[in-house]
Amino acid sequence: MNQLTEKSIGCPYCGETIKILIDSPYIEQQYIEDCQVCCKPINVLVSESVNGELAVSIYSEDDVF
């Protein structure tokens, strides 16, 4: 069964709020998703927070993480 979780994020380039789908059974994943508004590549890092919830971090191509 596929468990997709929808998250709202702010694009690090244009600042628009966009929605992305996270494949929640796969914690600890990293991928690139293009902004639906400005089309620039956003680095998405998915991990599990200390309290066990889904944590999503976003970075531009220029950010170091």
Rank of each mutant, 00 (worst) to 15 (best):
residue 3 Q to K: 06
residue 5 T to C: 01
residue 6 E to W: 00
residue 6 E to Q: 10
residue 6 E to H: 11
residue 6 E to V: 02
residue 8 S to Y: 02
residue 9 I to M: 09
residue 9 I to E: 02
residue 10 G to Y: 11
residue 11 C to P: 01
residue 11 C to F: 05
residue 11 C to H: 04
residue 11 C to G: 03
residue 12 P to C: 03
residue 13 Y to E: 08
residue 13 Y to A: 02
residue 13 Y to G: 02
residue 14 C to D: 05
residue 14 C to M: 09
residue 15 G to E: 09
residue 16 E to C: 01
residue 16 E to N: 10
residue 16 E to A: 06
residue 18 I to W: 04
residue 18 I to C: 01
residue 21 L to S: 13
residue 21 L to A: 13
residue 23 D to F: 11
residue 25 P to S: 13
residue 25 P to L: 11
residue 27 I to E: 10
residue 28 E to H: 06
residue 28 E to T: 06
residue 29 Q to N: 14
residue 29 Q to L: 03
residue 31 Y to H: 11
residue 31 Y to F: 08
residue 33 E to Q: 14
residue 34 D to N: 15
residue 35 C to L: 12
residue 35 C to F: 13
residue 36 Q to V: 10
residue 37 V to I: 15
residue 38 C to T: 03
residue 39 C to K: 15
residue 41 P to M: 14
residue 41 P to Y: 11
residue 41 P to V: 04
residue 41 P to K: 15
residue 41 P to F: 08
residue 43 N to R: 15
residue 43 N to P: 00
residue 43 N to A: 12
residue 44 V to P: 00
residue 44 V to T: 01
residue 45 L to V: 14
residue 45 L to E: 06
residue 45 L to D: 03
residue 47 S to V: 05
residue 48 E to I: 06
residue 48 E to M: 11
residue 48 E to F: 06
residue 49 S to N: 15
residue 51 N to V: 14
residue 52 G to V: 02
residue 53 E to A: 08
residue 53 E to L: 09
residue 54 L to I: 12
residue 54 L to G: 11
residue 54 L to Q: 12
residue 55 A to V: 05
residue 55 A to P: 03
residue 56 V to Y: 01
residue 56 V to W: 00
residue 56 V to H: 01
residue 57 S to C: 07
residue 57 S to D: 11
residue 58 I to H: 07
residue 58 I to A: 07
residue 62 D to I: 08
residue 62 D to Q: 13
